[in-house]
Each structure stands twice: as C-alpha cells, then as structure tokens.
Nucleic acid binder design. Structure first.
Lengths: 211, 211
DNA sequence: AGCCTAACCGGAAGACATTCCGTTTACGAT
DNA sequence: ATCGTAAACGGAATGTCTTCCGGTTAGGCT
C-alpha cells in the first residue's frame, strides 16, 4: 500500500497531479469529508501524536477500513490534512504576485519559493513529519512534491541554463525536508533566518554564470 | 526512546561520536555481539524485511527486551549493522589516500566524499532506508552523520570561505538521503552517474569564488 | 569471601498500523 | 421499477514494534 498515494487523496487537489481518477461514489465522498473533519478536530485538540487511525474512524463514525480505503495510510491522511494550505501555496507561486509569482527575476522567485516552503514547514512541522516519516517515499510520491519540483526545475533552468535542472531541483528541495529542518532547529538550535540565509547563499552560488 | 541513539550503539564505533560512555558489563557486551551476529545472518539470508526484532532476539538466544536495551529500536539495530562499512569509510576520508583523504584539493575531496557516500548507499540502501525511516531524526542523531557533517563543513569552509559552512554541509548531505536517492533511482529512473554529475555541478557552483 | 547495587535479563503485555473478507449499497443499464 | 455489479462498508483479526517489570547477576568494595 501507499504505493499510489497520488491516486489516493486525489480529491485533495493540491497534493495530487491527478489525471481525473473517475468520480467517487456519493457515500465515499461523504465519508472522506467526515474523516478529514474528524482528523482535523483531533489534531487541533491533541496534536498529531493523538492521530490514531482507530480514533479518527470512530470520531468520523466509520470503520477503520474506510479510513484506509480513502487515504491509504496514516501518511496519506496527514497529507490530506496538509492539503488546504498546500493549495494556497501553489496558487501563490503559480498565479500570485511577485516575488513568489511570475514577474520577479528567477533567482528571487527561487528564494521566495524556498522561504515559503520553510514558512509552511514552521506552521505544520508536526504534520509534515508524520507525512514524510511513514513510508520512505511518501514525500516524493505525493503530488505536492512533483508540483514543487516542476516549478523549481523551471526556474533553475533559467538561472543556470544547460545544467541538470531536474536534479538540482531535487537537491534544493532536499534541505527543506521536515526531518532535517526540525533537527536543525530543535537539536542544533539553528535559527530560521540562518537556514534561509544558507539557502539563499546556495541559490546565489547556483545562479552565478557557469564561467 | 531512540532519543539518545548515539549513546546506544556507542560501541559500534563508526556511528558514534561518543564520549566514552562507561564500559559495558561483560554479559551485556557478549549479548551485543550475539545480537549483531544474529541480525547479520538474518539480513544476509532474508534481507532487511526479514529483520524482525523478535526473530533477532530468538536467533541470538536472548529476550527481545535485551535487543531493545542494547540498540534502542529497529533503526538503532540497523545502524549497528552499517557500522563496519562506516568505519572503513571514515578511515578512508580521515586517513586514507587522496582524493578522499588529505592531499587532494578540497573541491575534489568533497566530490570524492559525496561519491563515496553514494556508493555506500548503493550497496546498503535497504538497511539505510530502515535506519533513516524509523524515527525521523535517526539519521542526524547518529554519530555517523555528525562525523560526515564535520568533515564536509571543514572542506566547504576552505572552498567557500566566509560562508555558513555548517549549513552548506547539511545542504550537501541532504540530497544523499537514502529516501531521496532510492526514489530518484527506482521511481524516476535517474542513473547513479547522473546523480553524481548533478552533485559535482552543485559543488562546483559552491566553490566558484564569491564574486 | 561476602555484600550491595547498578546494570542486566527475559518475555508477557500493550499499543498501533494495516489487512482481510463477508456483507451492504450506490447507481448505470435494462 | 428492477437488476447486476463494481465499489464501499465495518470491524475483527493480524503483525510488529516497543514498553514494562519482577527477578537475576556482574563486579566494585570492605
């Protein structure tokens, strides 16, 4: 399981790249909503640690099996909870004003984008941690990662033409993993600003002309 | 648990940075060895998926509790199994011949080091995946990461003086996480050479003079 | 040699995630 | 309306990891 997470939370929008997966049956859609509401309620009151699949099911008034059929696994559910904010984020860099959106020079857009990801991480680190932790590839398989990657690769291509932009995009997203960043902050006491500066420096390095 | 993994597999050497944690009792040391041997046997025959804590315990002729007291959790055990190779690696870049060891220009040493990490990852991806997956911070808390980080930071400092070398070291290690790399290779079909080239490019970018 | 205690031991109990499968239901086709 | 079937449902069962705790023991000290 968790293999095709993208097909799973397909109705979640932001997290999926989806090729219209075929409509959901009425009862299924209703339960999906109930489950998300219940999960949100639980997280709000008790934090992510309290997000037990069985409790979610009970709070939503469905069986555990239903939660799994709908979201694949715990990570999938976590992603679904992140979706709302993810959609905002995507709109901001796809259609919003500069520097995140179109209009600013690519270097600035990259920096703004990475900063935005970090800010989001600040708010939702616990949830992201769960989402990234269960099943090793969860993060990358999620539609969100693909969208971020595509966006970033496009910008990198402009800033460092002829490079392997797709690889560099992965490399720039890697330091923004929830695991690393929370470690940097919580364990090594690195400040958010320091992290942002470090990333900016990296981006500058990449965008200097090849020769 | 898993909080102080570094203190856990302390006798593992390579993975720990250890401040001599105080000697282990004779029976404890004996059991540690038995457990590691058993675990190695199991992994060799059935792969990491077959590494059940209870089986390890049984094969080692000890109780499960003992495995946990000795290694903290499954990730800790996995790290212990990686230790032998890790020690080799550390000796290679700390005391071995160039380009990994002292003698080559810093840029080359960085590249060689990252390539070495990737090569190691190729051989032991399954084990590394387990080690990194359970408990989000496992990788960073491990002594191995700290050693790698310190080594890399030193080199980065030479190559890009005045930068935040410690941050950049994190950023260079991030794309070599087992999760990302196995994803790149297994899911997106990226070749090892491509990954290495990408990293080399990144390193070159970093080492160009600031202006 | 005998004592004391911190460190160890084993394995049953507990906690969750995930799967399985027999039953029920939505809804397009007839 | 009725029917047939793919899709959904619930929740007991299963599989693992991890914790707990009453009993044991190594080894420093006297």
């Amino acid at each position: 399981m968790a293999a095709d997470r993208s097909a799973m939370n397909g109705r979640g929008l932001g997290l999926t790249v989806a090729g219209q997966p075929q409509p959901e049956r009425a009862d299924a859609a209703r339960n999906r909503k109930r489950i998300i509401d219940a999960a949100q309620r639980i997280v709000r009151s008790g934090g992510v640690e309290a997000l037990y699949m069985e409790e979610v099911a009970q709070a939503a008034g469905v069986g555990v099996g239903t939660v799994y059929r709908r979201f694949g696994d715990r990570a999938g559910l976590a992603y679904a909870l992140l979706d709302e904010r993810e959609v905002e984020l995507q709109q901001a860099f796809l259609a919003g004003p500069p520097p995140l959106g179109f209009g600013a020079p690519p270097v600035e857009r990259i920096k703004a984008f990475l900063h935005a990801l970090l800010d989001r991480l600040q708010e939702q680190s616990a949830l992201l941690l769960v989402a990234e932790t269960n099943s090793p590839h969860a993060r990358y398989v999620s539609g969100a990662y693909r969208v971020h990657h595509a966006h970033l690769a496009g910008l990198v291509e402009q800033v460092r033409p002829g490079s392997d932009a797709r690889y560099l995009a992965d490399a720039l997203l890697a330091p923004i993993g929830a695991c690393l960043v929370t470690y940097q902050q919580d364990v090594t006491g690195m400040s958010l600003d320091r992290i942002k500066s470090g990333l900016d420096d990296l981006v500058d390095a990449i965008s200097k002309p090849e020769n």
